[in-house]
Every structure is written in C-alpha cells, then in structure tokens.
Simulated assay, not measured.
Amino acid sequence: MKSGYVALVGRPNVGKSTLLNRLIGQKISITSRRPQTTRYRIHGIKTTAEAQAVFVDTPGLHASEKRAMNRYLNRTASAALQGVDLVVWVIDRPGWLPEDDLVLRRIQVAERPVILAINKVDRLEDKGLLLPFLKEAAARYPFAAMVPLSALKGDNLEALEREILEHLPEGEPIFPEDQITDRSERFLAAEIVREKLLRALGQEVPHALTVEIEKFQTEGALRRIHALIWVEREGQKAIVIGRQGEVLKKVGERARCDMERLFDGKVYLELWVKVKENWSDDERALRSLGFVE
C-alpha cells in the first residue's frame, strides 16, 4: 500500500482545481475563469486498492503582493509545499510566464519530486510546440515526469495517475477510505455560493467579495443555510443584488441546486449582502473572515 500528500501548484488559472475535481471524481473545489478563485488549501482524497493520494489544492502563486489578500494567497500556497511527498506542477500549455519562475523558486526550496502537468493541450492548435517546450522545461528543472493532459476533458489523466502512484511512498492510508475531503459541509456551502457569484458577476466585483456562513442547521435530510456575502463598497453591493434582486436570486437558485446534489438532500438557502470596507487589504479582517493559514 502507498499513501502520501500530493501538492497541486502553479500560477493562477492553470486548472489546478479542475484537475483536483477530475482526479477525485467529484466536485469539491470551485472553479471559474477568474483569478483568485481558489483561496484556501483544500484536501481531496482518492483511495484505491493500491494507494491513497491526498491531493492538496492551492491558490495560484502571484508575482504581485500589493494587497493583504495576495500576500495571504502566496503564504498559503507556499505552506502547502511543506510536508508533502510529491508536487504536481500544473502549467497552462506551452508558454513560460514570470509567475512560473516564482513557482520554480518555491519548488526548488521544497526539494520534493515534481511532476510537470502541461494542462489544456486540447486547446493547443499547433501540437508541434509541445516537444520544444518539454525540452525547455527539462532544461529548467529535473522533473520526475512530464505529462501533457486536459483536466477538463480527462485526456491522458491515466498517465498522470500512474506517475503519481509510482512516486508515492509506501505507507498506510491517512484518512478513512470513504472520505473524499477534509473540509466541512459548512465550508463547501460557502464556496459554492462564491463560485456562483464569480460566474454571475463582471470583472469589477469578484476579488472584492467573500462568503461567510452565519447559520448551518441540519434537520434530517434538510439543511437550513444562511450565507452572508461581504463586499467592499456600496456600489458593489448593488451589483451583487442586481436589479430587483435578479442577480442574487439567480445565484441562490444555482447554489442551492449544487448543494442539494452534493449533500444529497433538500436545502433552504438565504443570502444577504453587507459592506465591510477594504476587507481584502486588512490582515485583521481577513483573519476574522476565516483566512487563516
């Protein structure tokens, strides 16, 4: 039996959360096209007859640390590299950006085996670019393996899983075999609401909002959930609510449907929107809202 922790790292928007959900076979990490979608370290647990891999989804590493939120995200992503047995570095098709150099420096310090996962190759129009990029990557770092794949479509995922199994250490399972995440239903409910907000809103609001669960009650198969959406300005509050409450209603309906599928039961969901000025650049406000490494 093999078991161990596998960190999924990379710059923002390369598909780490999509890859985690595909590996686990269930959606436990929210996804969107917006940067900073993943803000927390989330464990996704996959147990087979041969091994248990505990995947650690991490926020994207940012070159800029101007705001408290950016600094928190970088600290969280870097801390996830400590104590893991293996790193899967997810990169977005052939192409090297400054944020990739930041990731490279962090994994060099971690001194763990690293598998390079070249994601979104299904969108690569010129497949001839792949081989030169693999040669360039091999010159930059001694990767344990390099695997082109598509997390969205599941292409070549078996090859990645074989490499992960190959490099996991021997050991007993860390979690019960039927457990798929270390996060609570309360946490997952907040993240589902935030995902629906990210997908419903324009560019100006997503980074300035977060979701706090004020009440989570279970009554048999029914869950009563009251969620508070924090924004930084009154204008953002109006955008989140929408004309005659249309945006908030749509977000609530979509979030409730996802929760009912995930929790396998009925959900009663209420949403409110409040303003906490400049919360994302205030270390104390971040801690009070649950942003703790």
Rank of each mutant, 00 (worst) to 15 (best):
K2F: 01
V6C: 10
V6A: 03
R11K: 14
R22N: 14
R22I: 07
I24P: 04
G25W: 14
S32K: 10
R34I: 06
P35E: 08
Y40I: 00
R41D: 00
H43V: 00
A53N: 00
V54G: 05
L61E: 10
A63L: 14
A68E: 14
L73G: 12
L73N: 11
T76K: 04
T76G: 06
I91G: 02
P94G: 14
P94L: 12
W96A: 06
E99M: 08
R105Y: 13
R105S: 13
R106K: 14
E111V: 09
V114G: 11
L116N: 10
V121M: 11
D122L: 13
D122I: 05
A137M: 11
A139R: 15
R140H: 09
R140D: 08
A145C: 06
V147H: 08
L149Q: 04
L157V: 13
A159I: 07
A159Y: 02
E161F: 03
E161K: 15
E166R: 15
H167L: 11
P173W: 01
Q179Y: 15
T181D: 02
T181W: 00
R183F: 00
E185M: 00
R186L: 11
R186T: 13
A189V: 00
A190P: 02
L198W: 12
Q203N: 12
A208K: 14
Q217L: 14
E219N: 13
G220M: 09
L222N: 03
L228H: 13
I229P: 03
W230E: 10
V231Y: 03
Q236T: 07
I241K: 11
G245L: 12
G245A: 05
E246D: 13
V247T: 15
V247F: 04
L248R: 05
R254L: 12
A255L: 05
R256I: 04
R256F: 04
D258N: 09
D264G: 01
G265K: 09
E270P: 03
L271I: 08
V273Y: 02
V275A: 15
N278S: 13
